[in-house]
Amino acid sequence: MTAISIRNLTKNYGSFVAVNDFSADIEAGTVFGLLGPNGAGKTTTFKCMLGLAAPTAGSVLFEGQPLQPALFERLAYVPEKSVLYDWMTIGEHLEMQRRAFSRFDAGRAKELLALFDLGEKKKVRSLSKGMRTATALCMAFANNPDILVLDEPTSGLDPVNQRAVLKLIIDASAQGKTIVFSSHQIGQVERAAENIAIMQKGKLLVGGSIDDLKAGWKIVEAIFDTDQFSTNGLAGDSRVHRMERTGRILRLSVHTGADALVDELTKMGANCRAVDLNLEDIFLNAVDPATVTTDLVEKA
């Protein structure tokens, strides 16, 4: 079942296009990672999804239905910036949740506060950025939601607490919850998420399962005997996204069919190998296709 279906979402602020015809399907019970450079439109996408901003075009469906206020009983959102009330204590924030959400679990809230070493009596004003993030996460997870939308849920946290947040996400996922989260820390997305979307300038660049992307996206490196080799046969090849030749070396960026390409190039007389790409490589390659080949030169 599709938990969240984003269809051709577009959001303009004046002449600025924050989100540009973005579509994604998020299956129930999966963890979905939203990646993109700063200003790519991740937060705006979340806001439009949750009805906090009105989309210029497109639609978002939750379990096949348009967003209704009642859905927030089962949906929790943790924004990137702190939206807590400075003048209230952490305990008052939890009390606010208890009164508003029928599924709020006070015992769970206490466990979560202990996990992040937060005291109920503390005023939000006195909290660091990371502690505010942690408080917002405690509030969200204590509601026992089915769908969690987390915008940069580890920002401002130290590595220990970042790991704790990842484990919270994994624990929730193991319970069948649907989780959408964005992070600048690609390694975290690589661990916790199954599916990702990479955004840039409001547009969807790449989407799919991390495993499929890793299986498909390769750099094929071929070393020929002479620098006079011909690449005519590859010119119109749909598998090749980018080609770069330096002397006897040919580097091809491919999104699928790397093994077959290696075989073909080997038959052409090249010493050929396919280099695996991790998610960061894939991200950088998607956002700026020139990056990966440069990186590989440095690695070599």
Partner: peptide, 18 residues
Amino acid sequence: TVKQLALDLTINPNTVAR
């Protein structure tokens, strides 16, 4: 269990299940 291993390794549970 899938959940235990996912938590131990801090990786996605569905990946472990797969």
